[in-house]
Simulated scan of single mutants.
Amino acid sequence: MKMINNISRNIVSGIVAPLALTVGGFNTSAKAQAPGIVGIDHVGINVPNLEQGVQFFHDLFGFEQVTKLGPFAMDANWKKNFHIHDNAGAVTVVMMRAGDGSNIELFGYTPPVGSTVQPYRDDISATHISLYTTDIKATKAFLESKGIQFLTDINAGMFDTEGESWVYFETPWGASIELNSYPNGKGYEKQKPAVKLWNPATAAQLTTETYNKAFLQSFAVKQVAVWNETDSVARLPKLKEIYQNDIAFFDEEGSTNGIASLNARISKLQQQNARFKFSLIKIDNSNNMVRYYWNYGPASKPNLISGMDLIILEGGKIRTLNVFLDKLPPAAK
């Protein structure tokens, strides 16, 4: 009975924050001081060669060019207002989609008469961007294989940033960019703060993708099979079939990012609740948001526990999964 009493703490399908506050890791409760503000739309970067900049971000990171404007001539008032050199020529602007983060906007000036000397890090308005990766060692190794120079070794965070790894590399034009990763969250999250930092690894979009009943039923069967598979090695290819590589999973124990971490979480659940099995109650959806209702328990009482997974699909695979409990067993006397 001790195991039953501890189920609310041990099972992977735990209580999460109310949907009104968190969906896929997004905190929607913050109130903007300036009316209408939602968040950062894009970050602007000057590059000495626009084609080189676009190719760099596309070929190494998969960022996609979406819009291109220009070249535009700039009059004297424009140059004065935006602190641009008097002898600057035309400007061309490219906007790129940068994965599940802020867009980036590349500015190319012709001719490039601005300074090519990088500002000191402590200069006013000196900036850098950071790219989130689910596997910082693999990303660093890949970039090094492409000739990218790194400025530091991989560093480990501490205190509030415990669990985070970071490293800096240099672009072909001399700017520094950071890689960072915290697949199991940061130290400050242990305090369960009212507001959490935005995390691109947990970002997901509601779309107009539609899935018919046949797909949903097949999907549900695979989901049950994955969570009931006791062999972690055999489970891994099944996970990859229905989960995105950067799956963001949320339950009462916290957040988990990536298939490997989720695989470990399932193994932990099965070790804590031997001979328990999941079974499907029902599944439905609204576009790419899916509600998956389940039972969990031993053969003698298969509906001992029940709950619902709120899932967002991307390309037919799970991108985020938030777990809600509907029923727990009564505490033993």
Rank of each mutant, 00 (worst) to 15 (best):
W198E: 02
S255F: 09
V38W: 01
N199M: 05
G174M: 05
N322F: 00
Q149M: 05
I7T: 09
L262H: 10
L313A: 03
T22W: 12
F142V: 06
V16N: 11
K333S: 06
K140T: 15
T110V: 09
F57R: 05
F26Q: 13
G258A: 11
L216T: 08
D246C: 06
K140S: 14
R291M: 04
P302Q: 11
K317A: 13
V23C: 13
V226K: 08
K31D: 08
N49A: 11
V16S: 15
P71R: 09
F57E: 09
P71I: 10
A264D: 15
S115I: 08
L280C: 01
L313I: 02
D246P: 05
Q149L: 08
K240H: 06
I247V: 15
G174N: 11
M3W: 11
I283P: 01
A126N: 14
F249P: 02
P172W: 08
T116V: 15
L328D: 02
S145N: 04
F61R: 06
A331K: 12
I311V: 15
S176F: 03
P112C: 01
Q55K: 12
I84L: 12
E229C: 14
Q55P: 00
P111E: 10
K222G: 00
G62S: 06
S125N: 15
S130A: 15
F324E: 02
D100S: 13
P112H: 07
A220D: 09
V66C: 00
F159D: 12
V66A: 03
N10E: 03
A274L: 15
T320A: 04
T210P: 01
N295K: 12
V221S: 14
D326R: 07
I312C: 07
Q33D: 07
N180P: 00
G39K: 04
D135R: 08
S218D: 11
S145R: 04
E252F: 06
K222I: 00
D100R: 14
I311Y: 06
I281C: 00
N263C: 10
Q149V: 11
D160W: 03
E314Q: 11
Q118C: 06
I136R: 07
S8E: 08
W227G: 01
S176G: 04
A201R: 02
N257D: 03
Y188N: 07
A225K: 01
E64K: 15
K79E: 05
I259G: 04
S300E: 15
G89M: 06
Y188Q: 05
S115R: 08
F249I: 08
V117R: 11
Q33K: 10
L50H: 01
T152V: 01
S130Y: 02
S13T: 04
D59Y: 02
G307T: 00
N303H: 11
P329V: 10
N199K: 13
P183S: 10
I148D: 08
V66Q: 07
K222T: 03
Q55I: 02
K327E: 13
N273D: 09
E144V: 03
I259V: 14
A34T: 07
V290Q: 03
